[in-house]
């Protein structure tokens, strides 16, 4: 009897224990604790991303203005001077205008190369050969986007530079070669964004245009392009932002001369190529090092200007 009782009580206990155990797991399933833990984790990660952005801006700004605040360079002379001559001891001069000029020229030329071809390809994908054009060009764009910039630079160095040398004379290195390399590099970006922009134009507008008797081309340039224009401009500006910041591919083909070039096929330099070439060889805290950080600050400011420009354009795109 006693034994039996004991057994039954034991049975009861195990059953109870299992019940409680199930209950516990059930509770974690619904508990607010795990909810809070997850939420905190997510918020920490999100704030880390914000902290990274803010610290990049802050640190680079602080480091970039050192050449003006600590080393006493004149900001206006820095931006407009055309002589970059940090080696001479008596008359060391830091004029960044050749590099700023180089960066802007290469960027604008690259956009002039990439915009027509990119938008043309986008039109082909969306207006002319909707099904198979899309199927053919989508992978082309994706692979071109993925090819690293040094490979573009290598191609520029071994194909485009010799080609320019044989056609126009000179060394072949220069802003023209850089613009072609960067233009090809930003081509897929421009094309894919332009295709998205054109796709978002409603089909009824095209049909209305055809119903009025317009040809395909008339529809494209009187209806589709005006409607998608702000987004198309956004695509080009985004490509330009990428071109402005490209470093190694440009460095390989531009020739790296620290002077204002007289033509497109003379060696020149850009902001990024100067940083790439000199940053590793300078000592921390020297005037040259600080001046290079100031070049970096100009790049950062231009990035922000491009972002503001893109915001402005996409806002206009939404209104129309």
């Amino acid at each position: 009897m006693i034994v039996k009782n004991g057994e039954s009580s034991l049975d009861h206990k195990t059953v109870n224990r299992r019940l409680i155990k199930e209950n516990v797991s059930y509770r974690t399933f619904l508990s607010r604790n795990s909810e809070n833990r997850g939420k905190i984790l997510i918020f920490i990660c999100a704030s880390l991303i914000m902290a990274a952005t803010m610290s990049i801006t802050l640190f680079l700004t602080l480091q970039g203005i050192r050449s003006f605040t600590v080393d006493g360079l004149n900001p206006i002379k820095f931006l407009t001077g055309i002589h970059w001559n940090p080696e001479s001891h008596q008359h060391a001069s830091y004029g960044a205008l050749p590099f700023i000029f180089g960066s802007f020229t290469v960027t604008i030329l690259a956009a002039l190369i990439a915009a027509p071809i990119g938008i043309g390809s986008a039109l082909f994908m969306t207006e002319i050969a909707k099904t198979w054009g899309q199927k053919m060009l989508q992978p082309v764009i994706e692979i071109l986007v993925g090819i690293p910039s040094v490979v573009y630079g290598l191609i520029g160095l071994s194909v485009i530079v010799p080609f320019i040398r044989s056609q126009f004379g000179g060394l072949g290195f220069g802003m023209l070669a850089a613009a072609i390399v960067v233009g090809i590099m930003i081509l897929p970006t421009v094309a894919s964004l332009a295709a998205d922009a054109i796709k978002s134009v409603p089909d009824e507008w095209r049909q209305a245009s055809y119903a009025l008797g317009a040809t395909k081309w008339q529809t494209i340039y009187k209806v589709v392009i005006p409607a998608a224009l702000p987004s198309l401009l956004t695509a080009v500006v985004l490509g330009m932002a990428r071109a402005f910041g490209e470093a190694l591919a440009v460095q390989m083909v531009i020739g790296n001369a620290k002077v204002l070039p007289h033509s497109l096929i003379e060696p020149a330099a850009t902001l990024t190529t100067m940083i790439t070439l000199s940053m590793g060889h300078t000592t921390d805290g020297s005037v040259l090092n600080d001046a290079l950080w100031s070049l970096g600050l100009i790049l950062l400011i231009m990035t922000y200007i491009f972002i503001i420009l893109i915001r402005f354009l996409s806002k206009r795109g939404r209104l129309s």
Partner: peptide
């Protein structure tokens, strides 16, 4: 901003 920073700026940071 992060996605449009030039990679050389990220390297400098």
């Amino acid at each position: 901003v992060l996605s449009s920073l030039p990679s050389i700026i990220v390297g400098m940071f």
